[in-house]
Each structure stands twice: as C-alpha cells, then as structure tokens.
C-alpha cells in the first residue's frame, strides 16, 4: 500500500498553517491512490510540532537532534532517509520558502520526479500547476515510482482536526556534514497577521510613492496583513517578504484590497484566487480593474483614509 509522507513545516515547535493545507492535499492524494498518510517533522521543536500535527489523526515521526537549522542539505537528507525507512511512495510539502528549498533535494536524493507548487490533485500521479505567471494551467504527470509534490497552500483548505490523535514517535536518522553554515536570521517583526495566513490583505503599489501609512491604517482597521507589489519591494519601501505575485507570495484571502497597483500579470498571479478583490487606482484603464469585483477610480491618499473611517464605524 502507498504511504504518503507529509512533511510538516515548523519553527521551534510551532506548526506552520501551510502544513494543514498540505495535509488536505495529502488526503486528496490518499483518496486517489489508496495510501495512508504519515507525518514527519524535522528540526528543533519537532516533537512539539509533531504532537500538534498528530491531533489531525495521523501518526507523526519527529526528527529532532542534529537538525537545528533548516538547512536544505541536512533536512533534505533526513526526509529522504525517512522516506526510505517508512517505504513511502509520495512526499508532500507545502510550497513555502522552506518547502521550495528542500523538496527538490529530497527528490534528487530519491531519484524521484517533483511536481512543484501544485494547485490540484488530478489522479495518483497527475497534478495541476500554474505556468507562465498563471497564464496557463498545466496538468503534469510524475512518471517515477516515488513522487515529491510541493503544494500551493492557498488552493487547499486547511485540514480539520478529527478522529483520534495519531502516535508521535522519534525517528533516528543520521545528519550528514553540511557544506552550508547558518550565520543569522533577521526576522522582519510585525504585529500584523502573516501575509499568507491572513483573512484580509491590503496591498500597496508604486502609487503609494513609498508612503504606506494609508495602507497600514486600513489594514489595522480591518485586522489585515499588508502586502506589496514588486515595485514597492524593489524600491526598498517595504520588506521583500511582502511581495505578492508570481515570484513572491501567493495569497487568497477572503478580501484583497489593491491600492496604487496597476495589476501586471505577475502581480495577479499571486492574488487572483482571492474571494473578493477591491482595486483603488486613479487610472480607470488600469488592468487591475479587470479582476476586481469592486473597482474604485480614485486617489488612494483620499479614498483609503475615508474607507478606514467607514470600516471603524462598522466595528
């Protein structure tokens, strides 16, 4: 029988929400190939994260010692070894920065084919994924016996807790000597919700001219995350981490507000799955209006503060 190994993303025992979307993808694959899902958490805090994941009704293995930093070389090797030990046929990881970094190494180590950033599970070996900045949706077939899949979290609802919790077991795997060394991590601290996990996102573009105060005020009134176009991140106005798009983050909140963003295809690739899209742009011809449910032709410096006041009145 097929064993599907779901690799958790966790930091110091905190399970990343994208893992739960990947679990849903794993469940869909299990329906197609009759397989059984087991979880795997690697790194410092793996035990704690494994407990959390096991509450979703799957057995979870934890690899803790020797894998403190999320180096692709060591985590990739650990995952590949776990795949062999558990005789897994499929490996599923959320397509976050972590997943994108390590999953191909797992595939190469196992001689497996990799389908990256998949949006749908078509069959036991076919998946849908976006190409050309979302201008086309391809169905790809992984022809190898072992398959590695990274999952676009926004396309799969988070799995729900259910059934009895699975067992958590420590798994012993050897840590290879790494040729990369962790030096430091500079976190961009923010009191706002995380961009990819937020229910509402307010994004600003070059039209802000770098002044994000109206964007942030509206975001705070809505309890929203802040996003940005590439132009904004390139200019250094906002952290790179906030870029939404083909080559940045993919988001699909229930409400996405784009202000001063023209709506280039590369930006749309990262947000057109949102449930409701609002565009505020002073150019009535801006392409963003073609995907907006509600378009407001206005100066964002005037419209956003007004909108912020209206939102506050509703609360």
């Amino acid at each position: 029988m097929a064993t599907i190994l779901l690799v958790a993303e966790q930091a110091h025992g905190h399970l990343k929400k994208a893992t739960l979307s990947a679990l849903t993808a794993a469940q869909q694959l299990a329906q197609k190939n009759g397989g059984q899902i087991q979880g795997l958490a690697v790194g410092a805090g793996a035990q704690t994260a494994a407990q959390e994941l096991a509450a979703y009704g799957i057995p979870v293995h934890a690899v803790e010692a020797g894998f403190e930093h999320a180096l692709a070389e060591t985590h990739g090797a650990a995952i590949a070894e776990a795949v062999k030990k558990l005789a897994a046929t499929d490996v599923i990881i959320a397509a976050t920065a972590y997943g994108k970094d390590i999953a191909p190494r797992v595939a190469a180590r196992l001689g497996a084919g990799i389908a990256s950033d998949v949006m749908a599970v078509v069959s036991a070996n076919q998946f849908k994924r976006a190409m050309w900045a979302g201008n086309a949706i391809a169905t790809v077939e992984v022809t190898t016996k072992v398959k590695v899949v990274t999952v676009r979290a926004t396309e799969f609802a988070a799995a729900q807790k259910g059934g009895s919790a699975g067992a958590v077991q420590a798994l012993a795997v050897s840590a290879p000597a790494a040729k990369t060394k962790f030096v430091e991590y500079a976190e961009v601290k923010s009191a706002r919700p995380e961009l990819t996990e937020a229910g509402v996102v307010v994004s600003g573009g070059r039209g802000t001219k770098g002044d994000f105060k109206p964007i942030e005020a509206l975001a705070d009134a809505l309890g929203a995350a802040v996003g940005a176009s590439r132009a904004v991140c390139d200019a250094g106005w906002q952290p790179n981490d906030l870029q939404v798009g083909q080559t940045g983050k993919v988001v699909a909140p229930k409400l996405y507000i784009a202000a001063g963003i023209s709506g280039a295809i590369q930006h749309l690739a990262g947000m057109k799955g949102s449930k409701t899209i609002v565009a505020v742009n002073k150019d009535p011809e801006a392409p963003i209006f073609q995907v907006a449910d509600y378009g407001l032709v206005a100066d964002l410096f005037k419209a956003l503060p007004e909108l912020t006041e209206e939102v506050k009145k509703l609360k």
Partner: peptide, 24 residues
C-alpha cells in the same frame, strides 16, 4: 522527462466586477 506535461489549459476567468462611484 520524469515530469511530463500532459495538458495545458487556460486559467479560469474571473467574472467581471463593477466600478463603484465612491467610498460609501
């Protein structure tokens, strides 16, 4: 290829929205 492209489709189109005259 280990990963074959078997089909390429156009992305689903988003239904056209509306322009609103003002913030209210």
């Amino acid at each position: 290829p280990k990963v074959k492209v078997v089909k390429v489709e156009a992305p689903p189109a988003r239904a056209a929205g509306v322009k609103v005259p003002d913030v209210a």
